[in-house]
């Protein structure tokens, strides 16, 4: 597995998209730090960017890379390696290289500002962790969809729809249901609903940690009220990790049974 991982990362490190992705975060973070000049405001702005962009890029790159490595996977399947190692290696290859591009792009400007000497270090670490988790979640979802659909266009379309649904439509439906059912107690409903969307979870997680009440939103407030900031962060974090594990497990299960 380590070898497949290593080589697929090696392949990606040569791709110019990896650098474009890295440069985007580098320039954006530097720009935000320059404009707002405060670390916490920059972190809040970055949250809004990464919760949309990381899922989108993870989805697109995931689907493209998986379909492009189909023949390579077939080459590996004929080698004396376990199937699981091939598919896990491919997944980790893309997820880690995207996560590294993101982490370096965001971290370098903060390091220049000596983030470790400030009180924002914890918030910054959470921002990094959430970005990395979102990368793993959406690469996993994209791989799951791509593996289940041999038809590229269908797989690609479906992956984008999942992103669109979780990033945009879900919130709309959620708010709509809050308005429709406003006469009922909605706390546990909204607590569960936000757990079912990794993008919402990420936003809540960082806002809870940052303690920006104005930006918490309804679900964030519910999290805060019922679980408190500390437990809320813990629960949201655990739920995000479950979001990494579940699609990955399904992906590996399907891979084990699939014919190539």
């Amino acid at each position: 597995m380590i070898k497949v991982w290593q080589y697929s990362m090696y392949d990606l490190i040569r791709s110019r998209w990896t650098y474009i992705y890295f440069l985007f975060y580098l320039v954006t973070t530097m720009g935000l730090l320059h404009i707002s000049n405060t670390l916490s405001m920059t972190i809040v702005s970055l949250v809004n960017i990464i919760t949309i962009l990381i899922p989108l890029i993870g989805t697109i790159f995931g689907a493209i890379y998986f379909y492009n490595s189909k023949e390579f996977i077939e080459l590996l399947l004929a080698q004396p390696i376990r199937r699981r190692s091939i598919f896990l290696g491919q997944y980790l290859g893309l997820a880690t290289s995207l996560a590294i591009s993101y982490s370096l792009g965001v971290a370098l400007p903060f390091l220049i500002r000596s983030i470790w000497l400030t009180d924002q270090l914890g918030n910054f670490m959470i921002l990094l962790a959430v970005g990395i988790l979102l990368t793993f979640i959406f690469v996993g979802l994209a791989y799951l969809v791509a593996l289940s659909n041999n038809n590229r266009m269908k797989g690609f379309g479906l992956a984008i729809i999942i992103w669109l649904f979780l990033a945009v439509i879900y919130d709309g439906l959620f708010i709509l249901s809050l308005i429709v059912f406003e006469d009922y107690p909605l706390e546990s409903f909204s607590l569960i609903t936000s757990m079912l969307n990794p993008i919402d979870l990420s936003r809540i997680l960082i806002m809870l940690k940052l303690d920006v009440a104005a930006l918490l939103g309804y679900t964030g407030a519910v999290f805060n009220k019922f679980l408190g900031a500390g437990l809320g962060v813990g629960v949201a974090f655990t739920a995000l990790i479950a979001w990494v594990i579940l699609p990955l497990t399904a992906y590996l299960k399907i891979a084990a049974k699939k014919d190539f």
Binding site: S8, D11, R14, E74, A78
Partner: peptide, 11 residues
């Protein structure tokens, strides 16, 4: 030897 030869393109 598979029928279609295609490998990771950046290698």
């Amino acid at each position: 030897l598979p029928q279609i030869a295609q490998f990771p393109e950046n290698l």
